[in-house]
Write a protein that binds this DNA or RNA. Structure first.
Lengths: 354, 354
DNA sequence: ATGAAAGCGCTAACAT
DNA sequence: ATGTTAGCGCTTTCAT
């Protein structure tokens, strides 16, 4: 243990209780090395500026004490933090988890740390989390999507004004009202692409199975694009909502219900995501349908399962990790300051289901 | 000394160098409310102790300024932080992502925040990350597994001594040399259980396909348990390593190689994880084998894919989210201080592949 | 119920 | 190349 018992009598006045948590501080290291705190501080940041002998003494003291710098103090004193805060709907969803992994990897290389929170697709929770995250004075705040409460927007704008880089990921919109940097793709266009694919294959009775998750507006927008494109082509098209609950089972149930409706039976079905899509595929097979002959199926997300069913599920493949990496570039300022609205590709992956 | 109000109009005289990042502080709020900073601070923490009128004035000032408390300052002054740091091998692996989601959800409810990092299965990177994370004086440090470098162990012990709760998750060992709280299950036992299942079904030529990831010692330990149990039963058993690269393809390749070896062809194959296992299953099907007649297959992890192939892959289902939740309980001190070594169940899920 | 003083551990600015 | 001083924004302790 490095630190002498709680108080020092050199002061003359009665020392108050020491409040620290007992770990070695810069002063402890400095005393041991026979210098003052600022010298150690300087050594830590630019080892070159201290004299070689001093450096050696400091190195010795550093390892003898097992010194770990207190970052809160550093941030407070310097005004610049090394934390990046990221807010996603759910940490476990593979698309966001992979994005965070990409983000984390690049940030780590730059010495930044990642503070995360999950909003559960609720904009109210999102606002509370943004407030809490901003309390750390992060260097950047990465948020999912472009739909936020007015309160959140206010917080984001203030943070931005205070020098915090704000990035919206997983979306891309040419005329976004708030104007934050973005890294993503347009979900309306994505939905449109799925419809056009099905139309090109001769489908004329299209249905969009929407997510049951209330706050998933990106799924909703894909549906909007899907419906618009199908209507523009003069095809029949409508939208249903998947039942709540476990998404693969929900997709299955949705498909069974759709097929059961003899009056308005679709010949193609687009699902809001690949979980629903794979469920629908499994449901179709359970019903003995031929996919894609009886029913074409497409999804969104390119989840792992989609590639390994047979037939495979046709889907759109967002570059999950790349979104995180490009976001990190933006945060690090190495992405080219010129373009702060990055559109990533979201290619169609055609498999057997369509 | 006296800091001019934040919104000074007559700022001209360059009032010292102000180092703050311009956001409203407690003092700004206090001035506007006609009280001092400490009163606002108290109001924030225990609204009941201030007079109703004062409270009203403070509330008004709070929302007028859009005050966001600076947590670094709070932690520094109070000595108790609200950050929990978590270190996993990879944020994108579903098992860890779900654990983090469970952890995050429970911590959020308690007002704690989550700082994450990914070690990439490297104990050296782990040590660097632990050092960096401890710099935030976290209330708790959650780490994956019980194998660490001596340097990491030293850091962990010092942190623990300084009041930081240290938890090892995803492992459980009765006589762990370092003695940190744990939340997990024993991987040797898990491997043994897989072997016993296969032996009980009459298999006598068993192979364990180990992970190619160098630092995945838990996979290695499952293999140890698997081999020990098979040997104890007098069965033939050996271990191979999956090829490096994308794990489903690797599992496939491993199975093809195994079947191709006519001299030592197994009748059952346990894979280090379900990615390899599903790959092996797909490989067996590609070869035209009957699963499980020609070859029984088991995996580990209960990844989503395992349930949806046909036949389904028999596997061990670790309670991924529960591990995060129980870890949170430990961190929050609500898990019952009595037992700091929590063993969670990891049930065998028998499907068609065995 | 509110305030004043002190200081958490560190770094920016201004010395030397 | 190293030290001194002041202060980041907040909360503690001790007063009123």
């Amino acid at each position: 243990m490095a630190r002498p018992p709680a108080d020092v009598a050199a002061d003359g006045a009665a020392p108050r209780h020491r409040r620290g948590h007992g770990r070695a501080t810069l002063r402890d290291v400095a005393q041991m090395a026979g210098v003052t705190a600022i010298t150690v501080s300087r050594y830590l940041r630019q080892p070159g500026v201290v004299a070689p002998e001093t450096a050696a003494a400091i190195r010795a003291a550093l390892s003898a004490t097992g010194y770990v710098p207190n970052k809160q103090a550093g941030v407070l004193a310097s005004g610049r933090g090394s934390v990046v805060a990221a807010l996603v709907p759910n940490l476990a969803h593979s698309i966001f988890a992979e994005t965070l992994q990409g983000l984390s990897r690049k940030l780590e290389a730059a010495g930044l740390e990642l503070l995360v929170a999950a909003s559960g697709y609720s904009v109210e929770r999102e606002e509370a989390q943004v407030r809490a995250l901003l309390g750390w004075a992060p260097r950047a705040l990465v948020i999912t999507g472009r739909h936020h409460t007015p309160g959140t927007l206010k917080l984001l704008r203030e943070a931005q004004a205070g020098g915090c880089t704000v990035v919206e990921m997983w979306d891309h919109h040419a005329r976004s009202r708030d104007g934050f940097p973005q890294v993503g793709f347009n979900h309306r266009d994505a939905g449109r692409e799925l419809a056009e694919h099905l139309l090109a294959h001769g489908r004329r009775r299209l249905v969009y199975v929407d997510s049951a998750v209330a706050g998933d507006y990106r799924a909703r927008e894909r549906g909007d694009g899907f419906l618009a494109a199908a209507q523009a082509a003069g095809a029949q098209v409508w939208r249903v909502e998947a039942p709540a609950g476990e998404p693969i089972a929900a997709g299955r149930a949705a498909l069974v219900a759709l097929w059961g409706d003899a009056i308005r039976r679709p010949d193609a079905c687009a699902c809001a995501n690949d979980h629903l899509g794979c469920g629908a595929l499994l449901g179709a097979q359970a019903l003995g349908l031929q996919v894609p002959q009886d029913m074409a199926l497409v999804g969104f997300g390119d989840f792992e399962l989609a590639a390994h069913l047979s037939p495979g599920l046709t889907t759109l493949a967002p570059p999950r990790q790349e979104i995180g990496e490009r976001t990190a570039d933006l945060v690090l300022g190495s992405g080219g300051e010129a373009c702060t609205r990055i559109r990533v590709a979201c290619p169609l992956v055609v498999r057997g289901s369509s």
